[in-house]
Design a protein around this nucleic acid. Structure first.
Length: 816
RNA sequence: GCCGGGAUGGCGGAACUGGUAGACGCGGCGGACUCAAAAUCCGUUGGUGGAGACAUCGUGAGGGUUCGAGUCCCUCUCCCGGCACCA
C-alpha cells in the first residue's frame, strides 16, 4: 500500500472497477427486495453546479447504503432537456438549441462519471429526443379522448414591442427583459389539463403519505385549497341579469355593502360602453404582469360601474365596482364585498368611502372595533334580521337551505387549485399533437402519426416561435376529413416531461408502449430527492400524471414517490450561488484539486441535507485532511502485519471500551444514514471513532484485533460517502471482494453492554454534579449517592427534598 | 400580499421523544518537529469572575407553561423557498 493518499489514481481505479463489473446495472430478476432511488433530473445548463453535486451525492449515499443492506437498487440519471435557457443561448450566441443541449449533456455526463455516482447508465433519458416525447404526445391524445384536456383563453405576459409572450422571470419590474417595454396582460387560447378532476384524491391521499415531509404536504394542502361555501346569484337591478359569486362566509351576507367584478367581466364591459373614463380604467387594469405575487402586492384600485344589484335578503341596492384585483380567470370573476369582516374589502371600502357594516360579534369579549381593521374571526350574527344570534355553522346551514329552496344558490366545494395550462408559445419543447381543421376543429394527431417531431435546424430570434414561420412544420391535412389544416405550433410546458420520467426509467427502451411490466416492478420510487423549490408544482403534477397513467391501465400505483427528501440550497457568503453575484464555486476545479471523495465528504458533512449549506473553502481542506488521516491510519495498521482473530470474551477493560464504541458507532451511523438522513452526524460519529482509535495505544495481539475490527468497520461505514478511497483501503486491508459488494456491518449487541453509566445530578433543574452509578440503579440508591456529593450538599442544604425526578440512565433532579 | 421553512460560539453545525447547550469539523491561540517554511502531531478555545474547585450569564427579541425549555404555546423582527410561463 502506498504511504500517501493520491485521489486521482485511487478514484480512477475504483471507477474502472465499477465500469468493468457493471455493478450498478440492475434488472428485475432478483431475490433481493427492490429499492428505487431517484433524484430530480437536471436541466443540462452547461456545467454541473454545487447544488447538483449536493443532491446527487445525497442520493448516491442512500443508494449505496441500501445496496450494502441487500436491496436490488436502481439509481438512474437523465436530462430534463427542453426549456428556455437553450433558446436564450440560441438568441445570444446563434447556436441551435439542440446542438447546445446535446453538447451540454455530453460534458455534464462526464462530470457525473468523474464524481463516482452509481448510476445504471443504460437507462439514461433525454427528454428532447422523439423516442421520449412521443409517449408524452401519445398520453395527451389519450387524455384528449377522455376529456381530460380542453382549450380556453388564459392570461399571459405580453411584450408589445417584441410581440412575444414572456415568462414571469423575463419580466423585470413590470418590463420586458429585452425590449424594456411595459408588459401587458393578454388572453390567448391555451390547452389545459384537468388536474382539478383529481383535486380531492390528491388532497386526501396526503393523509396517508407518511414518507413525505409535513411542510411539503401542508404546502400542497394549501395549494389545493379545498373550501366549502355557497354559490349565490345576485339579481342585477333594472334588468334580468344575475351576478354569480362564491363565498365561504355566507354568515357575513348581511354585511355586503358592494360588489366587485373583474375588468373582463361582461357586466363591466357592457357598462363601459359610451363611458370613456370607465373604458380607460378597464384598459389600465389590463396593464401589468400576470404573476399572482404581482397582482397581490399592487395597489388596489376600483371604479363604480353605475350598476346596482339587489341584496337577496334585504332587497337593498348595492353598487357594483370594477376592481383590478378581481380576475376573470379565477372563480366567477366577481366577489361580494364584506368590508366589516374581510381585510382586503375593508381596505378598499376605507379608500373609496364605501359603508362598513358589522354583522359578526366576537364571542370572547373583544369589542371587534371596525374603525381600525376588519373583524375576520368567526362569531355570532348581529344586524342580520331573523338570523341574529346564529353562529357560523347555523347561519351557513340556514342560508344554504333558504337559497337552495329558492333556486338562487347552492352549497359548493371549491378549490383554489386551477387546471394546468400546458401551452407554451415557445420553440424548444414538445410539440402539442393537435391539428386545427376549419371543419373538424381541434383534432388529436393519430397514434400512427406520432411523434410530431420538433425540427432541430431552426433560427431563433426571440420574437415569437420559429415554428410559426415554418410552413413545412405547420401545414398538414386534417386526420379526420383530409382537408388542408394547420398544426399547433405551441409546445408543452416542460413540467410535462418531468411528470412521468420517473416511470420511464424502468423501461427506457420500450418502443411498443409508454410503460411496460418493468415499471410495475420498480414503481413507486422508494426515495426521491430534490429541491424544496419543487414542493408544489413538479410534485403535484407528477402525482396527477401518475393517477392518469393508473387510470389508463399503465400502472397500478397512484402515488409516484413513497419517500421524499427535500434538500436545501448551496450558499456562499449567505447568498445563493449565481453567475450574476459572482459567488460560484466550480465543482470541476475542486474535483481536480482534491478528488471527488473530498467534495462528496464536505458536501455531506457541512450541513444536514434539508438545510441550506454554506460553502467553505476551509471546510473542504478539512475534509481532505480527514481522508488523508484515514489513509495513514489504515496504512500504519496494515504495515504492522496481520492480526489474530478477535476473542470477545478475552478482552480487557480498555479493549472492551473501544469495541463498545465501534458497535455504538455502527448502530448510530446505520440509523443516521438509513432513517434520519443525517449524514453530517454519521460522519462526525466515524470521526470520533477514528480519534478514539488514534488514542488507543494497545499493541497486544487482542488490542490489534480490536483495532482491526474498528478500522474495517470505519471503511465499510464510510464507503457510501467516499466510495473511491474506501475501495482502495478495503483492498489494502487484504480483501479479494470489492467493498461495493460487501454487506453493511452488523451491530453485536453483546459488545454494547455497560456495567455503569454516568448520571447527571441537578438541584432545582440546574446541573450540580455527575455521578457514576450501576446501569440499573434505583432512584433511592442514586439519590443517596448524589446527596453524598459536596457540590450537591451545598445547594440542597439541610432541607429535605420536596421532589426527586429520576430519568434512568440520564439524570436525577432534586427539587428543594 | 398569501402559503411553507429557518435563526444556537469567531464560522459550518450537534443536542433524535421536554432532561448535561456547543458533539464533530473549520478558524484562533500555545507547544513539538524543522536551519526555515509547508505538511504533520500534541494541548487549548462561548462570555464574565476565579489560581483553581466552581459560580454566573448565554440558543434572533419579548412574554408564558414546566421540577426542567434550543426543543412546547403566544406576540414580534429579520432571512430563505413557492405563488401556477425559471427549472
Amino acid at each position: 500500500m502506498e504511504d500517501a493518499y493520491r485521489p486521482a489514481t485511487v478514484e480512477q481505479a475504483a471507477q474502472d472497477h465499477w465500469a468493468r463489473t457493471r455493478c450498478f446495472e440492475v434488472g428485475e430478476q432478483s431475490d433481493r427486495p427492490k429499492f428505487y432511488c431517484l433524484t430530480m433530473f437536471p436541466y443540462p445548463s452547461g456545467r454541473l453546479h454545487m447544488g447538483h453535486v449536493r443532491v446527487f451525492t445525497i442520493s448516491d449515499v442512500i443508494a449505496r447504503h441500501r445496496r450494502m443492506q441487500g436491496y436490488n437498487v436502481l439509481q438512474p440519471m437523465g436530462w430534463d432537456a427542453f426549456g428556455m435557457p437553450a433558446e436564450n443561448a440560441a438568441i445570444e450566441r446563434g447556436v441551435a438549441p439542440a446542438k447546445w443541449t446535446y453538447e451540454n449533456i455530453d460534458y455534464m455526463r462526464g462530470q457525473l462519471k468523474r464524481l463516482g455516482y452509481g448510476y445504471d447508465w443504460r437507462r439514461e433519458l433525454t427528454t428532447c429526443k422523439p423516442e421520449y416525447y412521443r409517449w408524452e404526445q401519445w398520453l395527451f391524445t389519450k387524455m384528449f379522448e377522455r376529456g381530460l384536456v380542453y382549450r380556453r383563453n388564459a392570461v399571459v405576459n405580453w411584450d408589445p414591442v417584441d410581440q412575444t409572450v414572456l415568462a414571469n422571470e423575463q419580466v423585470i419590474d413590470g418590463r420586458g427583459w429585452r425590449s424594456g417595454a411595459l408588459v401587458e396582460r393578454r388572453e390567448i387560447p391555451q390547452w389545459f389539463m384537468k388536474i382539478t378532476a383529481y383535486a380531492d384524491d390528491l388532497l386526501e391521499e396526503l393523509e396517508r403519505m407518511s414518507g413525505w415531509p409535513e411542510a411539503v404536504k401542508t404546502m400542497q394542502r394549501n395549494w389545493i385549497g379545498r373550501s366549502e361555501g355557497i354559490e349565490l346569484a345576485f339579481d342585477v337591478a333594472d334588468g334580468d341579469q344575475q351576478l354569480r359569486v362564491y363565498t365561504t362566509r355566507p354568515d357575513t351576507l348581511y354585511g355586503v355593502t358592494y360588489m366587485a367584478v373583474a375588468a373582463e367581466h361582461p357586466l363591466a364591459v357592457a357598462a363601459a360602453e359610451g363611458q370613456p373614463a370607465l373604458q380607460a380604467f378597464l384598459r389600465e387594469c389590463q396593464q401589468g404582469q400576470a404573476a399572482e405575487a404581482a397582482l397581490e402586492t399592487m395597489e388596489k384600485k376600483g371604479m363604480p360601474l353605475g350598476v346596482d344589484v339587489i341584496h337577496p335578503l334585504t332587497g337593498e341596492r348595492l353598487p357594483v365596482w370594477v376592481a383590478n384585483f378581481v380576475l376573470m380567470g379565477y372563480g366567477t370573476g366577481a366577489v361580494m364585498a364584506v368590508p366589516g369582516h374581510d381585510q382586503r374589502d375593508w381596505e378598499f371600502a376605507t379608500r373609496y368611502g364605501l359603508p362598513i357594516r358589522q354583522v359578526i360579534r366576537p364571542t370572547d369579549g373583544r369589542d371587534g372595533d371596525l374603525a381600525t381593521a376588519a373583524f375576520t374571526d368567526y362569531g355570532l350574527l348581529v344586524n342580520s334580521g331573523e338570523h341574529d344570534g346564529l353562529d357560523f355553522a347555523q347561519a351557513f346551514d340556514a342560508l344554504a337551505a333558504k337559497f337552495e329552496g329558492e333556486g338562487r344558490g347552492r352549497r359548493r366545494v371549491n378549490y383554489r387549485l386551477r387546471d394546468w395550462g400546458v401551452s407554451r408559445q415557445r420553440y424548444w419543447g414538445t410539440p402539442i399533437p393537435i391539428i386545427y381543421c376549419d371543419d373538424c376543429g381541434a383534432v388529436p394527431v393519430p397514434e400512427a402519426d406520432l411523434p410530431v417531431v420538433l425540427p432541430e435546424d431552426v433560427e431563433v430570434t426571440g420574437s415569437g416561435s420559429p415554428l410559426q414561420n415554418m410552413p413545412e412544420f405547420f401545414e398538414c391535412s386534417c386526420p379526420q376529413c383530409g382537408k388542408p389544416a394547420r398544426r399547433e405550433t405551441d409546445t408543452f410546458d416542460t413540467f410535462v416531461e418531468s411528470s412521468w420520467y420517473f416511470a420511464r426509467y424502468a423501461c427506457p427502451d420500450s418502443d411498443a408502449a409508454m410503460l411496460d411490466d418493468r415499471a410495475d416492478y420498480w414503481m413507486p420510487v422508494d426515495q426521491y430527492t430534490g429541491g424544496i423549490e419543487h414542493a408544489i408544482l413538479h410534485l403535484l403534477y407528477s402525482r396527477f400524471f401518475q393517477r392518469v397513467m393508473r387510470d389508463l391501465g399503465l400502472s397500478q400505483h397512484a402515488e409516484p414517490f413513497s419517500n421524499l427528501l427535500t434538500q436545501g440550497m448551496v450558499l456562499k457568503d449567505g447568498a445563493k450561488m449565481s453567475k450574476s453575484k459572482g459567488n460560484t464555486v466550480d465543482p470541476q476545479a475542486l474535483v481536480e484539486e482534491y478528488g471527488a471523495d473530498t467534495v462528496r465528504l464536505f458536501m455531506m458533512f457541512a450541513a444536514p441535507p434539508e438545510q441550506a449549506l454554506e460553502w467553505s473553502d476551509d471546510g473542504v481542506q478539512g475534509a481532505f485532511r480527514f481522508l488523508r488521516r484515514l489513509w495513514r491510519q489504515v496504512a500504519a495498521h496494515v504495515a504492522a502485519g496481520p492480526t489474530e482473530p478477535l476473542d470477545a470474551a478475552a478482552l480487557d477493560e480498555g479493549q472492551r471500551s473501544l469495541r463498545r464504541l465501534v458497535h455504538q458507532t455502527i448502530a448510530k451511523v446505520d440509523d443516521d444514514i438509513g432513517r434520519r438522513h443525517s449524514f453530517n452526524t454519521a460522519i462526525a460519529a466515524v470521526m470520533e471513532l477514528s480519534n478514539a482509535v488514534n488514542r488507543f495505544a494497545d499493541g497486544s495481539p487482542q488490542g490489534r484485533a480490536v483495532r482491526h475490527e474498528a478500522i474495517e468497520s470505519m471503511v465499510l461505514m464510510l464507503s457510501p460517502i467516499v466510495p473511491h478511497v474506501c475501495h482502495a483501503l478495503w483492498q489494502a486491508l487484504g480483501h479479494e471482494e470489492a467493498v461495493v459488494e460487501c454487506p453493511w456491518p452488523q451491530v453485536e449487541t453483546a459488545a454494547l453492554a455497560q456495567a455503569t453509566v454516568e448520571l447527571v445530578v441537578q438541584v432545582n433543574g440546574r446541573l450540580r454534579a455527575r455521578i457514576e452509578v450501576a446501569a440499573d440503579v434505583d432512584k433511592e440508591t442514586a439519590l443517596a449517592q448524589a446527596l453524598a456529593e459536596d457540590n450537591v450538599q451545598r445547594f440542597v442544604g439541610a432541607a429535605a427534598p420536596r421532589k426527586v425526578i429520576h430519568v434512568p440512565g440520564k439524570l436525577l433532579n432534586i427539587v428543594v
